[in-house]
Design a protein around this nucleic acid. Structure first.
Lengths: 159, 159
DNA sequence: GGTGAAACTTCTAATAA
DNA sequence: TTATTAGAAGTTTCACC
């Protein structure tokens, strides 16, 4: 995968958009002392290059009644069943992220649920999938860090 | 935490914005057969209520040269050191997420790095934090699922 | 590459229903 | 609560640096 070259202006644009995707290009232009047209062209270029894959809202799931987060490690009976199991996992909407991993687990999921009762149901669904040997759950007591922006800064400073 | 009431219109608006935060309100209005002003008022209401916490770009970190993802479980010598350790972890920009957890680990992190070499450095930084007993790493071979929208649909259908 | 201005589109807030 | 509307603001294109 080729590393795309971004210059300082691109970095600054991404930096502002990462914090708020709806910040007007005219504001970005003003801050960076360039024209709004330039911002537009550069954003488009980054979209075309696939650097910017999309944008999404950050919602407060607690306020929607979903305050439970857990990570669930999945052990398979046999790694050849990985894609089958992933397909089944994909049918459970409360699993928001899943990775195939090396190390302790074969598959590693993040789940979101209303409460412990509901989480239990979700974990049982995972346990019940054919090919799953057992699971191990880590309940999140607190999401302490969640920071895209800091990473971005490091990436910028290194490039 | 009170559960905020969203009606079908709100759901649909969120649904469209989750996929693309820059979709014009006029487009949303057209699709839902309401006025753009109404879309505006409803989005503002959801922002004021804190349901919508913000928006962010989805970037392709691989294209930026960061294709390595791992989860790292941290064992502490003593849980009383949790907040101290979290502060130190927070100084490592390549740790993008951290949760305090029950279960196997005391703290659970997600890291992003350029490659295995770089990941090793990051993990060593975690290991070196005072109060950290040891760590356990799970390397992501493949991010198979990452879907906010599906969760949103379930939340909508349940409310 | 970038600019600046024109043409076009969207947003927003006030008013009315 | 929702719709309309009109002025303000933002986006996008393009001829020209």
């Amino acid at each position: 995968m080729a590393k795309f070259k971004l210059d300082e202006i691109d970095h600054q644009i991404l930096d502002m958009l990462i914090e708020n995707t709806r910040v007007p290009f005219t504001d970005i232009a003003k801050k960076l002392l360039i024209s709004a047209g330039t911002v537009h062209v550069r954003v488009k270029k980054m979209e075309d290059a696939g650097i910017i894959k999309g944008s999404s809202l950050t919602l407060d799931y607690r306020k929607l009644g979903y305050s439970f987060i857990a990570y669930v490690g999945v052990f398979l009976q046999n790694t050849s069943k990985t894609s089958f199991v992933l397909e089944r996992i994909n049918e459970i909407p409360f699993v928001t992220v899943a990775h195939v991993t090396t190390g302790k687990f074969n598959i590693f999921c993040k789940i979101r649920a209303r409460n412990t009762e509901h989480a239990k149901d979700v974990i049982f669904m995972l346990d019940d999938i054919e090919g799953v040997y057992r699971t191990e759950t880590m309940i999140s007591l607190e999401e302490s860090i969640n920071d895209k922006k800091r990473l971005m800064h490091s990436i910028f400073n290194e490039l």
